[in-house]
Amino acid sequence: MNKEFSCSIKRIRFDENYHPADSTRLTTNFANLARGEHRQENLHKTLRMINNRFNALAHWDNPTADRYSVDVDIISVDMDIAGKGDSFPIIEMLQTTIVDHKENTRIDGMIGNSFSSYVRDYDFSVVLLDHFAKNPASAPPEDFGDLHGKLFHYLLNSEAYQANFTKKPVICLSVSSNKTYQRTTNQHPVLGVEYRQDGCSLNKGSLTDEYFSKMGLTVRYFMPANSAAPLAFYFAGDLLSDYTDLELISAIATMETFQKIYRPEIYNANSTAGEVYQPSLKYQDYSLTQIVYDRAERSQMAVKQGKFTEEQFIKPYQDILDEWAASYDVASHAAKKEAVKEKAVKKQAA
């Protein structure tokens, strides 16, 4: 089955005037911050934290620590499965743009950063919970995450994505509180000290790591300078050479800020991760940010949104999705897209 799905990309600026769109997953960090009586104050403080962290890391030729600011856009991807104009919001990510006030220029930042997905909610909050309820001592289903991974690959190879972005996304998430991390001697000038997950190769480990590997993403863990804990960076290609220092800094500044707000026990702890580190959400020695954030609501909404996805996306298009996923080969589809692109370039050159 060589069915083509239609992808469309929308963007909205995450600033002090941001209001979540109706299609936005309500459990996203940025949507949660932008509701309630403290919304504008929350947004102002969050953006200030991002800018301060960026300038602290991009300290060269920046003596007053105010050379840069970061613009953040929410990137929403809709997909039309049946070709009838009915789109479903598949994925939301963030794109950063760096404003250099000294040179009066705008510089492309990172695409990715945060990662929100209704289908991921469905997988973890419906499929996985149902599986473990029936099979308490078993491993996750063998095909767990297959559909989501293929949809993600399809998006990256789509004309819509490639028309908007020149690089593949880097997703920056929290480390797992169920795993232990070992500090290595490897140190990057921007990303900081590298950690390894105990007993795991670079591409295996937590269930999240394995889920993201089906999206074609490898994980590495780095703790930037003056951070309390390492961050998990999920990427395709070479994290250290495919992205500029400023791109990497924009990802750190943005996502470390969200993690300090959402997981202060880990990322706003009053002590830093040691050589052997196991994150804990029960850790008591941490500081709160001055930003109001409803973590209870966030955890409760994931199940509701998973069921919403089941009713509005999985069940209506089950047959189409099953047939497509069974025949979709990631490598051959990417090669086909690349061949079409090369042919178009040669035709244009001629």
Rank of each mutant, 00 (worst) to 15 (best):
K307A: 11
K343F: 10
Q187P: 03
N164C: 15
R39D: 07
A21N: 15
A269G: 05
S125G: 09
S87Q: 09
M49N: 03
T97E: 11
K307M: 07
E297G: 12
F212C: 10
N178G: 09
F144W: 12
M93R: 03
D80L: 09
S327Q: 12
D238C: 11
Y154D: 06
H333D: 14
Y154I: 05
D242R: 14
T218S: 11
P63M: 10
I91W: 00
L321E: 00
A350G: 10
R263W: 01
M49H: 08
A232D: 03
V303C: 01
S201W: 08
D123Y: 02
E92A: 08
V72S: 03
L239S: 11
I111R: 06
A56R: 06
K168R: 15
S174M: 12
R120M: 05
K214Y: 13
S114L: 06
T166V: 15
K307F: 03
C172Q: 03
F124G: 02
G85E: 13
T96W: 06
E16A: 08
A296H: 06
K336G: 10
R53T: 05
D73P: 01
L26A: 03
A325V: 15
N104H: 13
D238K: 14
M223E: 02
E16S: 10
V77R: 00
A229I: 03
N52E: 14
K3C: 04
P89F: 11
L128S: 02
G199R: 11
D319F: 09
E142M: 08
V77Q: 00
D73C: 08
K282F: 06
Y283L: 12
A31W: 01
L155F: 04
Y18E: 10
F115I: 11
I74A: 09
P89N: 08
Q300V: 10
S213L: 14
D78C: 10
L173S: 08
P169S: 11
A65P: 07
Q259S: 07
D285W: 04
K45C: 05
A133Y: 07
M301I: 11
P224L: 05
G145D: 02
E338Y: 10
N32T: 14
E142L: 11
P224Y: 07
P169F: 03
E275A: 09
A137M: 14
K307W: 00
L43M: 15
R263M: 10
H101T: 14
S201D: 11
D242G: 14
F222H: 04
L231W: 01
S241P: 00
T64L: 09
I111Y: 00
V345A: 08
F258W: 03
Q187S: 12
G112H: 09
T257V: 09
G237Q: 09
S206Y: 03
E92Y: 08
R298M: 09
L248R: 01
P20K: 03
S23L: 12
M301C: 07
K10P: 00
S87A: 12
A225T: 14
N104E: 15
V175M: 05
I81K: 02
N104F: 13
F212G: 01
